[in-house]
Computed example of a mutant assay.
Amino acid sequence: MSAQTDRELADPQALAQLERHLGDLEATAKRTGADLSAVIAPLQQQIKRLHAELSGRISRWERVQLARAAGRPTALDYVERLCSDFVELHGDRVYGDDPALIGGPARWQGRPVMLLLQQKGRDTKDKIRRRFGSSNPEGYRKAVRLMDLADKCGLPIVSLIDTQGAYPGIAAEERGQGWAIAESIRRMVRLRVPAVCAVIGEGGSGGALAVGVGNRVLIQENAWYSVISPEGAASIIWKDSAKAPEAAEALKLTASDLLELGIVEEVIPEPMGGAHLDVDAAATLLGEAVSRHLDELGLLGASELLIQRSARFRALGAFREGQETG
């Protein structure tokens, strides 16, 4: 392939087409048993080369697209690679179970923890069932139940965040969506055990914050975290969701933005081109980061954890006092 052709292809949309083509070839090879390595290997190298070229000039909106890339690892993909003895607990003891927010005790790289997981789903049917990771009130009430159990058993909490926001349905509002989110935030603030939260894809609005009040908040390189999605902000400000790229720039929602603003403690690197291209490598990087922060927080007592967590969130934000006029 010529250098000119490479330059023409070096944009996210063309790259996404190549990645879909690669996925089709790999699926065909797996299904038929045919040896397509002579075609797949050069395509993999081409994709890596184009990702390297794009990495230095990728926009905030393009980061958002990477966070939504087909095949990006879900919370359960990471659990399968990093955890053992996971026992999913169901129900909120009030209304029912919510498959968009799941959790239970597990061993994170050998360490006993309580998991809180926002699970988007892996295929179309699963994504619809889980509402693409957007929880109803029972999901947040289930999270509170798991936090109570974690405190009782002395289990550190690991929360993996991946949602565009809480589910906006009428039934969810009728069952107290806002109240359930507030209760989850309040309960997490009062935890007496360490809590490490990691944004692994999308972190939208109160739906993400409900399980994001940790002693440490981490984010993967191509994830985003914001008070609102770019499309939502564009619809409010410009009455046009097509203005989402402009909204993304204004929101400063990327990992590097959040680190600079002090919203997160660490940006977790991803494999070249994104976590969806090498899930095992992405899991290794995530596992190491979360375990390191759990080690550090394990040195603190319950009172120290409460004070540190409260101080962390009170310190967020910036303001400037204006001069009086008149």
Rank of each mutant, 00 (worst) to 15 (best):
R60P: 13
R60E: 12
E62G: 09
Q65T: 01
Q65S: 15
R68F: 04
A69R: 10
A69E: 12
A69Y: 10
A70R: 15
A70M: 13
G71T: 00
R72I: 04
P73L: 11
A75T: 11
L76H: 14
D77I: 01
D77F: 11
D77M: 07
V79S: 08
C83D: 04
D85P: 03
D85M: 07
V87S: 13
E88C: 11
L89C: 03
G91H: 05
G91C: 06
D92M: 02
R93N: 13
Y95Q: 12
G96P: 07
D97P: 03
D98M: 06
P99A: 08
A100V: 04
L101E: 06
G103L: 06
G104N: 09
G104K: 06
G104D: 09
P105K: 01
P105Q: 02
A106N: 08
R107I: 00
Q109H: 05
Q109C: 10
R111E: 03
V113D: 02
L115C: 09
L115V: 10
Q118A: 07
G121N: 10
R122Y: 06
D123V: 06
D123T: 01
T124A: 15
T124L: 15
T124G: 08
D126E: 12
I128M: 10
R130E: 04
R131T: 00
R131P: 00
F132G: 06
S134Q: 13
S134N: 11
S135P: 11
G139Y: 00
R141A: 01
K142M: 11
V144K: 03
L146A: 06
L146K: 01
A150S: 05
A150G: 08
K152I: 00
K152P: 03
K152R: 14
G154F: 08
G154T: 01
P156V: 00
I157P: 09
V158L: 01
S159E: 03
L160M: 13
I161K: 09
T163E: 04
G165A: 09
G165S: 08
A166N: 09
G169D: 08
E173H: 12
E174Q: 15
R175C: 01
G176H: 04
Q177E: 01
Q177M: 14
G178P: 00
W179I: 13
W179D: 13
A180W: 07
A180G: 07
I181C: 11
I181P: 08
E183P: 01
I185L: 03
I185A: 11
R186V: 10
